[in-house]
Design a protein around this nucleic acid. Structure first.
Lengths: 195, 195
DNA sequence: TGGCGTACTGTACGCCGTCCAGCTATATTG
DNA sequence: CAATATAGCTGGACGGCGTACAGTACGCCA
C-alpha cells in the first residue's frame, strides 16, 4: 500500500496487475488520466518500476486494446454465414463500446495483436463459407473492420448527434446495424459478378 | 527570421501564418513533431507568442482539421443524386488523405467546424433529393461520414494490409469505393421499404 | 551459506503545454 | 505632431509527462 519502501523491497507487482490497474484507471478517470505516474501511484510503486513489467506506454495501450476484443467469440459452425458475420461484427462493436476510452487508441494505433488477428481469421473464414475469397475477401474484411471501429469511434465521441444523449445510444446502435446490413448485402451481392 | 528580437518588436505574425506554419510542419515532420515550441521556432517566435493568435493547441488542431475539408465542393445542381453523393464522399475521402496526419485527430476530436457542417448540409440535401429525409437521412449521413473518416484513418495507418505499400494505396482506394457503393445501394434501396 | 537475478528505488534529463508580468512598436486619438 | 491606448512579443517559470541510469536489497537456487 505505502509506496514508501526501501530499495529492493518487493511490491509483488505482476504484469497482469499492471494491466488490470491500467484498465481500472482508464474506466474510472479516462484516457487523459492514464499516465505512467498515476498508474504507478495507484499500484503503490514508483513510476519507473512499471518499466520492469511493460516495455513502454505504447505497448501497454496496445495490449489493452487487443484484450478488449477477447470477449468476441469465434464463429459458430453451422449457422448462415451472413447471420454469423453480423453476429461477429456486432459483438466486436459491443466489445469496443465496453471500453470507450480505448476506441480512439484502436483507430490511432492500429491493433495487430493476437485477438485482432483471431477476429480477422474468423471473418475471413465466414466470408469463405459464403464463397467470398481472395482479393474481394480482403476488401470485405477491411470494409467491415473499419466500419465497425469507425462507428464505435463516433459513438464514443460526445456531441456528434444533435439529439438528446438519451436517444443517442439507442439510435446509434440501430444505425450501426443498418449500415452493417447494407454492407453485408453488398458483400453478398458482389459475390458472383462485378469487376 | 531571427527570433532574437527585443521585446515589443513585431514579427508580423498573423493567425493565418500560424495555421500555415502548422500545416507545413505537419506535412514535413508529422503529427508527433507538431509541438507549440517547434511551431514557434519555425515561425521565428517564442512559444508563448502563439497564444496571441490561437486559443490553445486543441483549437489549432480543430481548425486545421476543418480547413482540410474546404476543398470539397458543394453538390452540383442537376446530376443524379447517387452519383453526386458518391462524388461528394469520394472528394471528402481524398481531402482527408491529403492531410494524412490529421485523420486521427479528426476521428479523435470530432470536428464540428464550419466546413464539416457545410459537408453535412450537402449530404443531407442530396439525400433529400433522393427521397431520404428525417431519421433515415440522419442515419445515412452518419454511416457515410463515419465510413469515410474511418476508412481514411485505416488507410493512413501503417502496416494494416500485409501487401506491398505500393499496391496498398491503389487497392485501398478501390476498396473504399466498393464499400461506398454498397452503402449507397443500401441507402437507396431502403428508401421506400424496410422497418 | 553464498551468489545471482531482478524487482524496486532515488534521481534526473529533456520534453511538453501554458501562464504571468513586463516591455515596446504600432495604431489611435487629439 | 505629441500623448495615449492597444496589442504583439519576450524572459522566465510552473507543473506534468515519458523514460533512462545506477544502485540496493530481497527471494531463489546451488
Amino acid at each position: 500500500m505505502d509506496p514508501r519502501r526501501t530499495p529492493g523491497q518487493r511490491a509483488g507487482l505482476t504484469r497482469g496487475a499492471v494491466l488490470a490497474g491500467a484498465r481500472a484507471l482508464l474506466a474510472e478517470r479516462g484516457l487523459g488520466a492514464l499516465t505512467m505516474r498515476a498508474l504507478a501511484e495507484r499500484l503503490g510503486v514508483r513510476p519507473n518500476t512499471l518499466y520492469s513489467h511493460v516495455a513502454d506506454k505504447d505497448a501497454l495501450l496496445e495490449e489493452l486494446v487487443d484484450d478488449a476484443l477477447a470477449v468476441v467469440p469465434d464463429p459458430a459452425g453451422d449457422a448462415d454465414w451472413r447471420d454469423e458475420l453480423h453476429r461477429l461484427m456486432s459483438a466486436s462493436h459491443r466489445a469496443l463500446l465496453a471500453a470507450p476510452e480505448l476506441v480512439p487508441v484502436t483507430l490511432g494505433r492500429g491493433s495487430r495483436g493476437p485477438q485482432a488477428q483471431r477476429l480477422g481469421r474468423g471473418v475471413t473464414e465466414l466470408l469463405a463459407r459464403g464463397g467470398v475469397t481472395g482479393a474481394p475477401a480482403r476488401e470485405a474484411l477491411r470494409v467491415l473492420v473499419l466500419y465497425t471501429i469507425g462507428f464505435a469511434a463516433f459513438e464514443v465521441r460526445p456531441g456528434f448527434p444533435d439529439a438528446d444523449p438519451d436517444e443517442r445510444r439507442t439510435e446509434l446502435g440501430g444505425t450501426y446495424d443498418r449500415g452493417l446490413q447494407w454492407l453485408l448485402a453488398g458483400i453478398a451481392g458482389g459475390r458472383t459478378g462485378s469487376g
